[in-house]
Nucleic acid binder design. Structure first.
Length: 361
DNA sequence: AAGACGGGGTT
DNA sequence: AACCCAGTCTT
């Protein structure tokens, strides 16, 4: 058997056997009566995000939006608030929109046809396969980071998995391996194996039920898979954030629906070369009484680095009106509204709240 | 086919 | 500081 090729049937038999003993079965979205809705929410949260990070968000989210109708009827701001800090906020907007589609087009019941699930915003091939297999036992493969790692190693697949040709090959392999019975368990087991055994660094091949037929393991090249993309140097951008203070209130603006922190609330910004006082007068109709710089902080994205230069500005007590109230709000740091805040904005507000209040400077 | 999209953890 | 993570959408 050592030299032969492992059949798909034997592959899944071994994997499921391993999963019965060693797999995780007590995650919050894996309860016995977990609905398609909770599987879906968890899968969306788990996109590009690790289990440990997701768990508290998932619990809070499900407590507030226990079913698809409550999510569909909720305010976008409320949904974003519960997503704040998770990142990739388009996921939350898509989740909300998809819930409304399920309410309006599917009678509030989660669809069970692959094409219908795939057409929901935010749901691609892998997530559609995950929900249908995990929640309904349908035979669809998945291809997330864990599965990619397992497959590239087991079959010694070279090339960066983000490349189209490599990805197609991996989908074909995943499809051939997926059993017609127990597809959900199989997919869960693949993800668990990737998360617990076939880890990116220092994989526990000694505990792997497939290692004797794993090409990378046999060749002693496990660390070479999956290949990584050659990375470019990230561009550095800079922005000045205006922390406009009026007593314990601070002015926030809603960001445009697309782009970084889309739909979230943040501080007004101005370019590094602009005059902040002038900017406040002309764009916001506010007179500045005092100002001082706060320490610069760097925020890193996948695609660029951002230097945030916070500038605290005290507003004159007279001339209270802010131009164009739509999309702007005086945020009470003592009694916070439930808004979605970008992570660095939330941090700045926390520091701000800790500052001595009142008429210093 | 390539780039955009967040934040946190690990090394 | 580099690298990665239970991907999907837009261009």
């Amino acid at each position: 058997m050592q030299d032969g090729v492992l059949s798909s049937k034997e592959f899944s038999r071994r994997l499921l056997q391993w999963h019965r003993c060693a797999g995780r079965k007590d995650l919050p979205w894996q309860r016995r009566n977990s609905s398609a809705y909770s599987v879906w929410v968890s899968e969306i949260m788990l996109q590009q995000t690790q289990v440990a990070t997701v768990i508290p968000y998932f619990k809070r989210f499900m407590a507030r939006f226990p079913d698809v109708l409550q999510l569909a009827d909720a305010d976008m701001d409320h949904v974003l608030h519960h997503w704040s800090g998770l990142g990739y906020y388009a996921r939350a907007r898509n989740l909300h929109r998809a819930a409304q589609i399920i309410r309006d087009d599917h009678g509030g019941l989660f669809p069970q046809l692959f094409e219908q699930v795939l057409s929901l915003p935010g749901v691609g091939r892998s997530t559609a396969g995950a929900v249908l297999s995990l929640a309904f036992g349908q035979r669809y493969p998945i291809l997330d980071g864990n599965v990619k790692r397992v497959l590239t190693r087991f079959f010694a697949v070279t090339g960066w998995p983000g490349e189209t040709s490599v990805q197609q090959r991996l989908w074909t392999i995943a499809d051939e391996l997926t059993p017609s019975r127990n597809a959900g368990l199989f997919n869960q087991a693949m993800m668990d194996l990737g998360a617990a055994v076939c880890t990116r660094r220092q994989p526990a091949c000694a505990n792997c039920p497939l290692s004797d037929h794993c090409r990378a393991h046999v060749e002693g090249s496990v660390a070479d898979y999956p290949e990584t993309r050659a990375r470019k140097r990230l561009p550095l951008k800079a922005v000045r954030m205006l922390l406009l203070r009026k007593r314990e209130m601070v002015l926030l603006e809603r960001r445009p629906p697309t782009g970084v922190w889309g739909g979230l609330w943040s501080f007004p910004e101005c370019g590094m070369n602009a005059d902040p006082v002038e900017h406040c007068a002309t764009r916001l109709g506010l007179k500045v009484a005092a100002l001082h710089n706060l320490p610069r902080r760097r925020h890193t994205f996948t695609h660029f680095n951002l230097d945030i230069h916070p500038l605290e500005l005290e507003i004159e007590n007279s001339a209270e009106s802010v131009m164009d109230g739509i999309g702007r709000v005086w945020y009470n740091t003592a009694k916070p509204d439930r808004l979605g805040l970008a992570a660095p904005v939330a941090r700045l507000i926390d520091e701000f709240r800790a500052l001595p209040k009142g008429d210093c400077e």
